[in-house]
């Protein structure tokens, strides 16, 4: 294990895979000499050259569409968009095309591609550069959706995503890029898609989260342990396919569930988790209604203080937990 940032872990995952498989190339805006909007591909052009680190014109539709075309011929493209928000321009290529090609081929072809999207608020980048749109992707059969929260998870999950034969949407949280953690150095280390991780075991409440909110959840959980409230923190890591078993088993144990995500509440992925619990036999174990702590239903404000207020804080999470316990 070696200490590195989330950003370095992502770069290492791509570098290791690209050394092994010459069919992998990266395509995106400013990813060459510039090293990517958030510096994730920094230096990669020196090792792999322009042919495999492709700087593209500002054409999100063509970037995603061309990647899908290349994938069908056996390449394994990795797309990097500067901001998750820009996938709106590439949605036809992703949703109507990449996600459906295998099905429309009668299962005859593979579409191995990864679309890396830096998402989320917290950088003062305002309404059009700060969104969390993961629920959109989860609503499209044919896509896999991954949202890592730690450097080690980012490395292991990205490697699995690159090796996967389906289109994978890989959501990176911008605010996590500079966070550090211990990362496996073994180039064969991977984390399977579709497996949640219990980051903290507990007996009183199941807190289900992913991405950047994990950090806040763990801080709250540690604080509340001092008050003898023991929270089980589940990091979903992959949203599609969803690891329902881990959620259901945990709720059966604790009898209480709270979901935390940064995305706006209405139509957010939290609703799917609530439904998963409510439809399962964990329902009979519930001691209280399920609670969602999510972003408010507005665009992310430009003002720094308002931006913070628009997404869940540690205080919001704590308040939700007290509410769940009738405290």
């Amino acid at each position: 294990m070696k200490e590195m940032t989330y950003s370095e872990a992502i770069r290492l995952a791509m570098t290791e895979e690209m050394r092994k498989d010459e069919n992998i190339f990266i395509i995106g805006e400013d990813i060459g000499i510039y090293g990517g909007t958030f510096g994730v591909t920094k230096g990669m052009i020196d090792e792999f050259g322009e042919e495999r680190i492709k700087d593209a014109p500002i054409s999100e539709a063509a970037i995603v569409g061309a990647a899908a075309g290349a994938a069908v011929t056996g390449m394994r493209p990795i797309v990097e968009l500067p901001f998750l928000d820009f996938i709106t321009i590439g949605m036809d290529a992703l949703v109507n095309q990449a996600a459906k090609m295998r099905y429309m081929f009668g299962g005859n072809e593979k579409v191995p591609m990864v679309v890396r999207l830096p998402g989320g608020s917290g950088t003062g980048a305002a309404a059009q550069h700060s969104q969390n749109l993961e629920a959109w992707f989860c609503h499209v059969p044919g896509l896999k959706v991954v949202a890592p929260s730690t450097p080690n998870d980012a490395k292991g999950l990205l490697k699995s995503s690159i090796r996967d034969d389906n289109p994978v949407v890989f959501i990176e949280s911008k605010l996590l890029y500079n966070t550090t953690g211990m990362v496996e150095e073994d180039p064969e280390f991977t984390i399977p898609l579709g497996k949640a991780d219990i980051k903290l075991e507990g007996s009183d409440i199941s807190l289900i989260t992913y991405g950047r909110m994990l950090k806040k959840a763990l801080i709250v959980a540690k604080e509340l342990a001092k008050e003898n409230i023991y929270i089980e923190v589940i990091d979903l890591r992959t949203l599609a396919p969803l690891d329902k078993d881990t959620i259901i088993q945990s709720v059966k144990k604790t009898g209480r569930a709270i979901i935390v995500h940064e995305a706006v509440k209405t139509g957010g992925f939290g609703g799917e988790i609530v439904a998963t619990i409510a439809e399962s036999d964990a329902f009979d174990f519930l001691k209280a209604p399920i609670i969602r702590i999510a972003g408010v239903d507005i665009p992310i404000p430009h003002n720094k203080e308002l931006e913070k207020a628009a997404v869940p804080s540690e205080k919001d999470i704590k308040a939700g937990i007290y509410r769940l316990l009738n405290k």
Binding site: F25, E51, R52, K54, A61, A62, V64, G65, A66, A67, A68, G69, A70, A71, V72, T73, G74, M75, P77, D92, A93, N96, Q97
Partner: peptide
Amino acid sequence: TQLQHATGIGMANNIK
């Protein structure tokens, strides 16, 4: 939108 796949396949041919 299929034109983009055609461009992508062409680019893949160049890489390969």
